[in-house]
């Protein structure tokens, strides 16, 4: 089910040729398909995109994109593993950006106040989503579309009311800028390192801590999970709050990087994050997936998204490639999942 396990498992003698076992173990991992996809995409752009793609600036261009989407894709992936969706992230990102920009830029209050308020808004929207999903039983797709529009409307209305325009600028102080909004080596966003931190934390949560097991169980079969004593409602609320928090974090870091906040800045994140997660081998209907897979999916997506500019290909075709990639990824992941199941049965017959 996860990397750590699989690594350990390969040291357990399980009979048969060792190479065969390794392949079997590899195919069992939900990230198997996405790793192959990543390699294929990387090789393709390295060949077509040439030297610039492989230069530090080339790496920076897609890592910067990957980091921002990646931080949102992690909780979206966890929610998907738990059988739920969150589209409201697309509205939470600009809402958090503008909160910071208005509080610290427009009103000139200390940045820590603005940032806390921005992150707080993410947690609040997340709580609201989780609460509604639990209380109403309406599919989370619908609930979060609703909250997305609600939050977006409020953000737009309040921003125009307070600041008189749909964009607000902010000049951050040097300390905050260094922590959240700087470019390392002039081109690598500091967000990339935050992403690594988030990846480590999410890996711990999903694959190492016992709570990870609850998330898989919740997505596998909600009723059985509840009967097994898992606090499913609290878990759902916590996952939505986590997702709101991560989206708000991206919003906060965006305003510090770009020094201004726009109302419509988060839209592209909605589908992009879902695509990263699905390319990464997370089962759309819940119950299966891995953090490593989500990271690989995010990298794949970012490479295609940015790599296209290093080639002579019309950038609009990038969307076609991403669309095709998504289909191939889902089909390949299904195949690997079937293999993972049947491999285990045949072995003992």
């Amino acid at each position: 089910m996860n990397t750590r396990n699989s690594v350990l498992a390969s040291s357990v003698p399980s009979g048969g040729e060792s190479i065969k076992v390794t392949i079997g173990q590899f195919s069992r991992r939900p990230e198997a398909g996405s790793l192959l996809g990543l390699i294929a995409v990387f090789v393709f752009f390295a060949l077509v995109g040439g030297k610039v793609f492989l230069s530090p600036a080339g790496y920076a261009s897609w890592l910067n994109v990957a980091a921002e989407i990646g931080i949102v894709a992690l909780p979206v992936g966890l929610l998907m593993i738990a059988g739920d969706m969150d589209l409201s992230i697309g509205a939470v990102i600009p809402a958090a950006s503008l909160t910071v920009a208005i509080i610290s830029g427009h009103y000139g209050l200390p940045e820590i106040v603005g940032i806390s308020a921005g992150l707080g808004i993410g947690l609040l929207v997340g709580f609201f989503n989780g609460y509604l999903v639990n209380r109403t039983g309406v599919p989370s797709l619908i609930v979060t579309i609703g909250s997305m529009f609600g939050v977006m409307g409020l953000t737009l209305g309040l921003t125009v009311l307070i600041a008189g325009s749909t964009g607000v600028s902010l000049v951050p102080g040097p300390t905050i800028k260094a922590i959240l909004g700087d470019f390392v080596g002039g081109m690598f966003q500091v967000t990339i390192f935050w992403w690594l931190l988030f990846v480590a934390a999410f890996f711990q949560l999903l694959h190492v801590s016992p709570v990870g097991n609850w998330i898989f169980a919740l997505g596998g079969d909600k009723v059985s999970a509840r009967n097994a004593g898992i606090p499913t409602e609290r878990l759902t609320v916590a996952l939505y709050m986590l997702s709101g928090f991560c989206a708000a974090f991206v919003g906060v870091s965006q305003v510090l990087v770009y020094q201004s906040a726009q109302v419509l800045a988060g839209q592209s994140f909605i589908f992009n994050s879902i695509m990263c997660v699905v390319i990464g081998g997370v089962l759309l209907t819940g119950g299966a997936g891995s953090v490593v897979g989500i990271v690989l999916g995010t990298l794949t997506f970012a490479i295609v998204n940015q790599g296209i500019y290093f080639t002579g290909i019309d950038p609009n075709l990038g969307s076609v490639i991403i669309g095709a990639l998504l289909l191939v990824a889902v089909m390949m992941n299904d195949k690997f999942r079937l293999m993972a199941m049947s491999y285990a049965t045949k072995k003992k017959k």
Binding site: M1, N5, P210, N213, W214, F216, A217, G220, D221, V223, S224, A225, N227, A228, G229, I230, L283, G287, A288, R337, M341
Partner: peptide, 18 residues
């Protein structure tokens, strides 16, 4: 069986009481 097809035997055995 009330079990989770995509979980390992060990994990599904201990769901909720890991």
């Amino acid at each position: 069986g009330g079990t989770f097809p995509l979980m390992s035997i060990g994990r599904s055995f201990f769901v909720g009481v890991e």
